[in-house]
Design a protein around this nucleic acid. Structure first.
Lengths: 135, 135
DNA sequence: ATACATGCAAACTTTTTGCGTCCCC
DNA sequence: GGGGACGCAAAAAGTTTGCATGTAT
């Protein structure tokens, strides 16, 4: 686990997120977890999600700049996001098999407007800085 | 053009964004535009960028939940985003040619952590609603 | 016992909005 | 001249943080 102490809050947050297939916002997840732990705070939800993201157990999805949505689905898969309501659905299968294929998305009932292939990494400047400051 | 009236502000915003290759934040673009139009407000920059996005002339890039960055580069191309500093660089070439190839990214000096293939569209529920309300 | 984690609320950052004025068509 | 666009500033939305308290180890 990505933390030093396993608390009730963290256990429940991860359980509930894994059960929700809908990639909820922090607020939606907080509402859901509150059914089991009524006094849990939104701050704890954010802190836990951040540590799960750093550990690679959760991905942040959604539109750049807009409210975050959280995905605890394992494995290599893509997403389809609704430009109107922000909803995000999963696409099965490895990323590089799908870039040119709209079929799976259309089967979900979406009209496809755009395909994006994006990489995430560490840029040269930040790599250098990290080497200097001690890796 | 995506607006009804062509003003000095809109002209300059689009010109400067096209000249900046760095995918600036709204604030950075505002600073830059202010050199030519000292009284322009940040609100106008946001309103103009929003209308350019709706018109398909600008793409929003960056990490969900973090500050937006704006891309006026034409054509089908992907992005590589630095997980540390948020910087975003362009990748040349059509989406489906890039999905499985880290070479171009590594040549820019990035360490690749993740590849994402994401679609953008309109979900079934929103399509229905739009048909009801009058297309 | 002792840190680490939590709840709470305040602070912060980024984006949106209301409104009176301005100026493009 | 009229209505869309602007500047300004306040508000909203979303996220982070400080601190006293609770609790897992």
């Amino acid at each position: 686990m990505p933390w030093e102490r396993t608390t009730k809050q963290r256990t429940v947050i991860l359980e509930e997120l894994r059960e929700m297939r809908s990639h909820p916002t922090a607020d939606e997840l907080h509402e859901r977890v509150r059914l089991r732990l009524p006094r849990i705070s939104l701050g704890t939800v954010y802190r836990t999600l951040e540590s799960l993201e750093r550990a690679g157990m959760v991905r942040v999805v959604g539109h750049p700049g807009s409210q975050r949505r959280f995905d605890a689905t394992g494995g290599d898969h893509g997403h389809i996001r609704c430009i109107r309501c922000g909803r995000v659905d999963d696409l099965a299968g490895p990323a590089d098999a799908r870039a040119g294929d709209d079929g799976a998305v259309e089967r979900l009932g979406y009209v496809v407007l755009e395909r994006r292939v994006d990489f995430v990494g560490i840029c040269p400047a930040c790599r250098e800085k990290e080497e200097r400051d001690g890796s």
